[in-house]
Write a protein that binds this DNA or RNA. Structure first.
Lengths: 191, 191, 191, 191
DNA sequence: TATGAATGAGTATTCATTCAT
DNA sequence: AATGAATGAATACTCATTCAT
């Protein structure tokens, strides 16, 4: 008789939002942004198109929420890679990257695709620039401790390498020698 | 009013095709595949939509022709980088890459964008895989001559580096330190 | 936790209904019928959409109630214009009209807008016809007392004049010379 | 074998455009702007929705074209009402108005409805203001020749009267005494 | 009485493609 | 070879209305 409590509603809302975001993530990662219609997302999530617009003002807003969520998830990982020994930590970073590549390729794929739609998603530019600087800074710190002659240049190389391997493994799929790359990089930089 | 000879016709066809492909390249490079309509391409090329469909079975077929042509154009460049001295040739390769990045970003941008539409353009997968192997093979040859301990691994790194720098400079635009990267890479690998 | 008495309930119902109608009036007067959504009305009234549908069977029914209420409100005004002297009373009518125009344009705007949706709101036709006859009858009575040669024709003119000034001041907004019109009409008919 | 001549195309375009505008006019006059969908217009015109957008950039643009066309049609009429004798000319104006009301009510209905959507169609405001001034000026000229004491005030009254009769006859339809009004007005002003 | 999550039919608009000429 | 009028399926988005609680 009485309306749902606000706690119940909060739960329902959170669940629906999550369902929609998961469906969107899955489909966009698989088919790309343009080839994924709002109708497909709603269907995959098992909700109506109308409901989707109850939670996200537009397809773009949904994608923005997606990216933000993925980003903050990524952040929380960095902490776990810390180690007093820079060589060990660098190894952790490499290993984390290769695990990501193997297991959460989607994640990276979406971000990168949106880069090509920079007119529509200009917030991506800012986020990515900032993230890139963070990563380069982190690597530079490690390489400095390891007495590299040009830690900044080398850090930039490693950062570019990560993206390069990402895109190449997207292009050639299972033909990309992730294992060999991992082994070689760790030997080269961490021993 | 006599009918055109088949030779004349052949010329006309070739010219129209070229105009269309150039227009398509220009617009897609600038605005992306999905944001470039067939109508826009026809207008830019100065022909009718109908004519476009006389030469290309579909928008996809046009894009495929585009990629193929761009690829074979790239091939012809390689010859000019040849040099008996592997260090000099590697330097040529690096310099060529940075010139490309600065002056013909478009070219690379199109190929990479299509990678994200792999369901539609699966021929890209084959082409890119083959090209990648060629480049890696070329680099591997040079590095072997230069007595690198693991020429294949290092060749793969350089190849990934190229794509990585490409995508990062696309992402962060003018903030990307192309000059510093060029200087550092040449110092690192060619001196 | 004892159940509310039916009297209390009646009060609550009346208050909620009033809040909703006021909100609807305000928004529709400002933005028009089609541009005012049920969601907006509920929000403005501070109630849920569900409650709104407890009191009104549909958006159309709500609007119908609105118009009915506005009409009966207008009725109660007429009494205040009464005067034994027909010239004075006619002047009162004119002055009342111009005050309405300046201060409650909304009211008249809603009615008139709905006229254009006569398929949806055919009850408007009946109401307006009846009201028009009432007003014309009132004016005719006054003009008869003032020995006009054709009191009915002149009453119809005045009635049309009122609507005409209403719509023209809606069309040209602040450019409409309400003051001059008022002055001229009173001089013409009441002196 | 050869493409259609530009003259043929011009004809085809003109015909299609006309069909669409006529269909739009008919439906909007009958059902109003908001209740007339682009799909309905296309269907009524016997063309596809796509074609409609070949000729008009948007539903709003179509309506704007409609209004403009109706306006310029109205202009051409004025010339025919001219007469050296002001009383005769004023009579012509009255008679023209009543013919319009009886035969082209639609025309006026559309313009007036759009006035209520002034946020979307602000060009209507300018047009209507200008037209109103023209008409008032014309009437004022005639009334001056006829030695009316306040020609401007009386001209404004007549202009308002026209709109007022228009809206009232829209409201009460066949119950509106157009004939009596015509007779009375002509007697009042032209004899 | 009261809530607001959920629905789905509806809207304007776009665009690759066809085809009569 | 060449045109561009015409199509129709698809797209993102809106909103009055329902219903479980």
């Amino acid at each position: 008789m009485s309306p749902k409590t606000s706690i119940q509603n909060e739960q329902i809302r959170a669940e629906s939002k999550l369902k929609i975001m998961e469906a969107a993530f899955k489909l966009i990662a698989k088919n790309g942004y343009d080839s994924t219609s709002v109708a497909m997302i709603a269907k995959e999530a098992g909700v109506s198109k109308g409901l989707l617009y109850n939670y996200f003002a537009s397809k773009e807003a949904l994608v923005e929420a997606l990216v933000m969520s993925a980003m903050s998830e990524a952040d929380s990982v960095i902490g776990k890679l810390m180690d007093a020994n820079p060589k060990v930590m660098l190894k952790n970073v490499f290993q984390w990257f290769f695990i990501e590549m193997r297991e959460h390729h989607d994640h990276w794929r979406i971000i990168t695709e949106l880069t090509f739609k920079i007119d529509k998603f200009d917030f991506v530019h800012n986020i990515v620039t900032q993230k890139l600087n963070e990563y380069v800074g982190l690597l530079q710190g490690l390489l400095t401790q390891m007495d590299y002659p040009n830690p900044l240049g080398e850090a930039r190389i490693i950062a570019a390498l990560f993206d390069g391997m990402g895109i190449q493994s997207l292009m050639v799929r299972e033909d990309y020698p992730l294992n060999e790359m991992e082994e070689y990089l760790i030997k080269k930089y961490c021993e």
